[in-house]
Design a binder for these strands. Sequence first.
RNA 1: GCGAUCGUGGCGAAGUGGUUAACGCAUCGGUUUGUGGAUCCGACACUCGAGGGUUCAAUUCCCUUCGAUCGCCCCA
Length: 417
Amino acid sequence: MSIQKPKGTQDFLPGSVETWQYIEKTARDVCRRFHYKEIRTPIFEHTELFQRGVGETTDIVEKEMYTFQDKGERWISLRPEGTAGVVRAYVENKLYGEPDVSKLYYTGPMFRYEQPQAGRYRQFHQFGVEAFGATDPAIDAEVIALGYTIYQELGINGVRVEVNSVGNPASRAVYREALLGFLLPKKQLLCKDCQSRMERNPLRVLDCKVDQHHFIGVPELLDYLDEECLSHFAAVKKHLADMEIPYEVNPRLVRGLDYYTHTAFEYKAEGIGAIDTIGGGGRYNGLVGQIGGNDQPGIGFGIGLERTVLVLAAQEVAIPKEGELQVYLIGMGEAAEQEITKLLYRLRRDGIVAETDYLGRKMKARMKSADRFQAKYVAILGDDELAAGTIAVKEMSTGEQTPVPLTQLTDWIKARG
RNA sequence: GCGAUCGUGGCGAAGUGGUUAACGCAUCGGUUUGUGGAUCCGACACUCGAGGGUUCAAUUCCCUUCGAUCGCCCCA
């Protein structure tokens, strides 16, 4: 039996990889204008980084990481998300010593051992940004706007931005108690999932899809935020409004990673199966300190690229094509073939996308190839042309054929486009 | 981790416990020994994800395993 790719991984073949390039190019360009710089960090890190950063009790760290011991008996994990590694690099390279806010972006593969389903893979890809060193709510809004702009410029419609504040650890602890006080008497009425959520992460109970009617009168997190949290959240919303970023406050938006404080947000889209979150992030003011740096605030998000691809496909967004074949060369006879080798290389160096036949096929088959490649022109060189020092150039869309001096082929193609 | 459905040539897709595994698309060749996108003719699966079992006989029945799709949990 031939070897198959590991479960939950994908090959990105020519024809679909262009979509990925389009997303990456667009995202990079938006980051450039927002003045974020790329950072590249290892795909694997010490396991401890994720235990400390993502949170020891999260599902991700508890049961979804690809963890192994290397030959030096170090515990290593493939990164399950992007933030922890960037924070580590920020601390290790003492970027906090720089006078300005560190505004970084990254893209690459992440790994989680999960059951694959629509929009979920074991190796998946994220594009993310992180901004360190500022607590100004304007940065929160900038980060949210950046992500929104990427979706806009990709040509995706109907992306919803949901925002919330999860407060600081102190106010969240108070809320947690109040919430449990409300839920405990109703515990038997709730679905099985919620009963187990109550123990592991009570805030997530509010996400429940079956039992919403039990939650009438439930205490809301926003009511438990202190003055500082509230004014920060208000300022974020003000900045979003100033930029005319459409957003909705979702008081029940809770994120799955432990490190979030204050601002939490998600980007949502319809039509890609059971999953609707295509990106998400938030502020993490305690994280840098936990990783071992001096305590700098930070905020960021991650965009799920597989999910973005699904949305682009669902909305039938046209992907701009690049590198289309301009000319297909055909040489008939030994002398002509020799000349084709030289001509082909010269065209390519001159910036023309050029191709020829390598299967020794007949004229008709070569024409078919050129047609399949959607070549703009076919240039045919035989004994007659060779003697005249020209090449017969056929424009495929019109069928019109003209002799062009061999030395002028590049200029002729460039002039005609 | 749990559940459902599925796995036949490059792709899509029929099929049956038993002599040659439909068909469509694509591909290749021919009709035209230097000209594509149309038509016609022809070629193209020692084999039905893998392993084992039942049977005189299995692609078709059973088990295991691998994978895919979708959903739950969780998340991007």
